[in-house]
Amino acid sequence: MEIENLWLEIKCKHVKADTGKLNVRKLRNSNNPVLKLRNSIEFNTWFGIASILGCIYLTFQFTSIYIYSLMLILIIQSGYFTWRLYQSKLEFEKLSQNWNQSIIQALQIQIKLFKKTIQLLELRSMVFMPLGYLAGSMMIYDKNAISQDNPVINFSVIKSAIILALITMPILYFGLKWFHKISFGKYIEETEDTLIEWEDFSDDN
């Protein structure tokens, strides 16, 4: 029997057995890496917006020029990364809707986008978190200093906060890199293998 006829027969059997009302279940924690990354982008974008608003609010609560400067740096870096993450979100959306694009092209773009976004998240955490608690420690000191009628800034406190921030930066960066490797590493590796196989086919023949 011809393959086509056999296929038609088995396809009819499978399709017939599979009709009925549409049943879509609400998913809570999807394990799909693409969906996980999409959720992470979403969360980080909103977190970035909240950080900017928080920093603007705090700017009006303190008088120290150092805190102003730090807040300004935090607002700029949050704004930059939030904007970049939002761009990634749009690129992912465009990719998943661009059905006229070939699968090889889609996979190439997806891998690039995946790596770029992950790197963005790592850099953002590396810069934001230490700056955040540097600002926090300065604010705590500033409040205390004002109440004690002392000079606003004690440089030894700032120095130790900066040293702590510098030590934490690589820890955060490599920690998040490790976390991303566990979450997305296998998916990236497998997608790259698939892509190589597909690209080889387009080159070989």
Binding site: N31, V34, S96, W99, I103, L107, Y187, E190, D193
Partner: peptide, 13 residues
């Protein structure tokens, strides 16, 4: 649409 989504979203081989 289904095939495109499966091939780009699928987790593993």
């Amino acid at each position: 649409v289904s095939l495109y989504t499966i091939l780009t979203f699928k987790r593993k081989n």
